Simulated scan of single mutants.
Amino acid sequence: MKRRLIAMLAALTLGGAALIGGASPALADDPGGVTYVAIGDSEAAGTGNLPYVDQECLRSKKSYPMLLAGMAGVPVASSACAGASTQDVVAQQLGDLGPATQLVTLTAGVNDLDWQGVLTACSSAGTAAACGAAMSAAGVALQGVPLGIAQVLVAVRTLAPNALIVVAGYPMLFGAFADSCSVGNYQGVSVKFTAAQAAGVNAGLMGVNTAVQTGVAGYVGQTGDPGVRYVDVTQGFTGHALCDTGDRWISGLVSGKPTVDRGFHPNAAGQQAYAAIVAAALAP
């Protein structure tokens, strides 16, 4: 796997301009930019997995971009930040991009919705009415995600004309189970999800993935840019979600700092799975 990744990055470095139709002479003469740049939200930041390299953004050494860079033997500049929306990515995370950038990975979109509000309302901590209202509001916000993703891609491509841009989706939080499932404690109170609530949360995440993929497809359809890929990670996490049959790759709730950040995020094994899935998508 590492050998294939190195070969892929070497090919991009040598022929990245050909990948997207060639850079202008002025851009080709500018060596600016980091070879591999990672952007996005808490999934890309590896939030919840200590130690952090950036406490404000909850960015972890164990994040999938850091692991992917280690597998390929290349440096990575990550600006991924917990809580970032697609607008935040455009406004705050593109400073390391340039004509020399050959690979960009992105995971974003879920924070364009009040996703934490959905998780709270649609658990034992909420009510049926609150869950319905939160899901309805999320459905409205979801309509803007494709445009948000497309705007990120336009901004990235403008700054990094030679890069392969990989957009990774989100894993499902829950596996299939009957009755109810405890996901841990928050402020001393046990938090549970019924099977119906868990299915609703997963459906919401699937909707986010569909919206992100729609944004990628819309951008590619409008621009003809062949250097953008969407990577579906859901199958790779099968059997390893909360309340699932295998080892958990998603963290439950843990009270107290700093472990509270882990809740509903991929754990170290989940970040390793993310890296492996993205690496497989990159390998020639």
Rank of each mutant, 00 (worst) to 15 (best):
S24D: 09
D179G: 12
K257M: 14
M66D: 08
L5Y: 07
K2G: 08
D29W: 11
V201Y: 00
A196Y: 01
G109V: 02
G73H: 02
L119K: 07
R229S: 13
D225E: 06
S42E: 10
D41Q: 04
Q143W: 02
L19S: 10
V145T: 07
L50K: 03
A195F: 05
T35K: 05
I6A: 15
A176N: 14
M1S: 14
A279F: 05
T245G: 05
T210E: 06
Y52G: 01
A7S: 12
T194D: 05
A11S: 12
V233C: 11
F237S: 07
P25A: 15
R3P: 02
Q151A: 15
G204S: 12
S60Y: 10
A129F: 07
G246H: 06
V166Y: 08
Q235T: 14
G139S: 12
L119E: 06
A100P: 01
T210P: 00
M1K: 09
L50M: 10
A203P: 00
V90S: 04
A199D: 05
L253G: 01
A176P: 00
P25S: 13
T245H: 11
Q187H: 11
L119I: 11
H265S: 07
A80E: 03
V53M: 09
T158P: 00
M206P: 00
F177H: 08
M71S: 05
T86M: 06
S24F: 05
S136R: 14
Y64M: 03
V90P: 04
G32V: 04
A11T: 13
A84L: 12
F193V: 07
D114H: 10
A195C: 04
L27C: 12
Y186Q: 13
G132Y: 04
V278Q: 03
Y52L: 15
L9C: 09
F264R: 10
G144Y: 03
G15M: 11
K62Y: 13
A275V: 03
L147K: 15
A280K: 14
D179A: 15
T245P: 02
A211H: 00
L113Q: 04
K2V: 08
A121C: 05
C243V: 11
A273D: 06
L106R: 01
G188S: 06
C181F: 13
Y219M: 11
A45E: 07
S78N: 11
A178V: 15
V212N: 00
L12Q: 11
A130I: 08
G175P: 04
P284Y: 04
K2D: 14
A268P: 02
C181N: 13
D96S: 15
A7L: 14
G239M: 11
L164A: 10
G246Y: 06
S255P: 11
V183L: 07
S24R: 15
A84D: 15
T35S: 10
A121G: 07
G184H: 10
G236M: 04
K62G: 10
A150E: 06
Q93V: 08
L94F: 08
V89C: 11
G32H: 13
D232V: 09
A23R: 14
Y274G: 04
S123K: 02
V145S: 01
A128I: 13
G239N: 09
C81W: 05
G207K: 08
G132T: 15
V145W: 02
